[in-house]
Amino acid sequence: MPDTPEAPRGADFLTEAEVAELLRIGRRTAERWRTTGDGPPWVRLGLRRVAYPRAAVLAWAEARTYPHRAAELAGKAAA
């Protein structure tokens, strides 16, 4: 079997179901976030196929991590 080229660094993509599992949310919630723009960045790979760069999903979640409720209300994510 011929050697296959390695995927470019950061090209690790997740399906919508995998994102839902990673974030512990429902798949319909992930779908809704994608359509409303509230969720992590995604990539269209075809007419009926979307994927999420793993690094972008983790960065999106990190930007919404707060040490306490007052920090969330003040809009200050944990550094």
Score class of each variant (00 low, 15 high):
residue 68 H to S: 13
residue 50 V to N: 06
residue 46 G to H: 11
residue 45 L to C: 09
residue 67 P to R: 13
residue 56 A to R: 14
residue 37 G to V: 02
residue 42 W to T: 02
residue 57 V to Y: 03
residue 61 A to P: 02
residue 67 P to V: 15
residue 39 G to C: 05
residue 40 P to S: 08
residue 50 V to A: 14
residue 38 D to T: 04
residue 60 W to T: 03
residue 46 G to C: 13
residue 45 L to G: 12
residue 45 L to S: 06
residue 59 A to K: 13
residue 28 R to S: 04
residue 36 T to Q: 11
residue 46 G to Q: 09
residue 41 P to I: 04
residue 31 E to C: 15
residue 64 R to T: 10
residue 56 A to M: 06
residue 69 R to K: 08
residue 52 Y to H: 12
residue 43 V to N: 00
residue 33 W to M: 10
residue 32 R to H: 10
residue 55 A to P: 00
residue 30 A to L: 11
residue 36 T to Y: 13
residue 58 L to S: 11
residue 32 R to Y: 14
residue 32 R to T: 14
residue 65 T to C: 07
residue 47 L to M: 10
residue 37 G to T: 04
residue 70 A to T: 07
residue 46 G to I: 14
residue 53 P to A: 01
residue 38 D to L: 12
residue 32 R to S: 05
residue 57 V to T: 02
residue 41 P to W: 03
residue 28 R to A: 15
residue 36 T to C: 11
residue 67 P to G: 13
residue 61 A to T: 05
residue 34 R to I: 06
residue 49 R to N: 01
residue 38 D to F: 14
residue 34 R to P: 04
residue 31 E to V: 12
residue 37 G to L: 12
residue 43 V to K: 07
residue 66 Y to S: 01
residue 45 L to M: 15
residue 31 E to M: 02
residue 41 P to E: 10
residue 44 R to H: 11
residue 40 P to H: 08
residue 38 D to Q: 10
residue 34 R to S: 15
residue 65 T to A: 11
residue 69 R to G: 05
residue 28 R to W: 02
residue 67 P to A: 07
residue 62 E to R: 13
residue 62 E to W: 09
residue 41 P to Q: 09
residue 67 P to N: 06
residue 56 A to D: 14
residue 63 A to F: 08
residue 60 W to G: 00
residue 53 P to D: 06
residue 65 T to D: 05
residue 33 W to F: 12
residue 61 A to W: 08
residue 63 A to D: 09
residue 52 Y to M: 00
residue 59 A to H: 08
residue 55 A to N: 08
residue 42 W to Q: 12
residue 70 A to Q: 15
residue 36 T to W: 13
residue 65 T to S: 07
residue 54 R to A: 11
residue 28 R to C: 05
residue 30 A to P: 10
residue 57 V to G: 02
residue 29 T to H: 15
residue 49 R to V: 08
residue 41 P to N: 02
residue 69 R to P: 04
residue 63 A to I: 04
residue 60 W to Q: 01
residue 63 A to C: 03
residue 48 R to W: 06
residue 69 R to A: 13
residue 30 A to G: 10
residue 66 Y to Q: 07
residue 53 P to L: 04
residue 30 A to E: 13
residue 67 P to C: 13
residue 41 P to T: 04
residue 55 A to C: 05
residue 37 G to Y: 07
residue 66 Y to V: 02
residue 70 A to H: 04
residue 42 W to G: 09
residue 68 H to P: 00
residue 66 Y to P: 08
residue 69 R to S: 09
residue 50 V to R: 02
residue 28 R to G: 06
residue 59 A to N: 07
residue 41 P to K: 10
residue 44 R to E: 14
residue 68 H to L: 06
residue 56 A to L: 10
residue 60 W to C: 06
residue 43 V to D: 03
residue 38 D to G: 03
residue 67 P to I: 11
residue 69 R to D: 09
residue 65 T to L: 08
residue 58 L to M: 15
residue 52 Y to T: 05
residue 40 P to F: 07
residue 42 W to I: 01
residue 49 R to F: 00
residue 46 G to L: 04
residue 44 R to V: 15
residue 58 L to Q: 09
residue 53 P to R: 01
residue 66 Y to D: 02
residue 52 Y to P: 07
residue 29 T to P: 03
residue 47 L to G: 15
residue 66 Y to I: 00
residue 57 V to D: 01
residue 40 P to C: 09
residue 39 G to E: 00
residue 64 R to C: 08
residue 35 T to K: 14
residue 47 L to E: 15
residue 55 A to W: 01
residue 35 T to V: 14
residue 35 T to G: 00
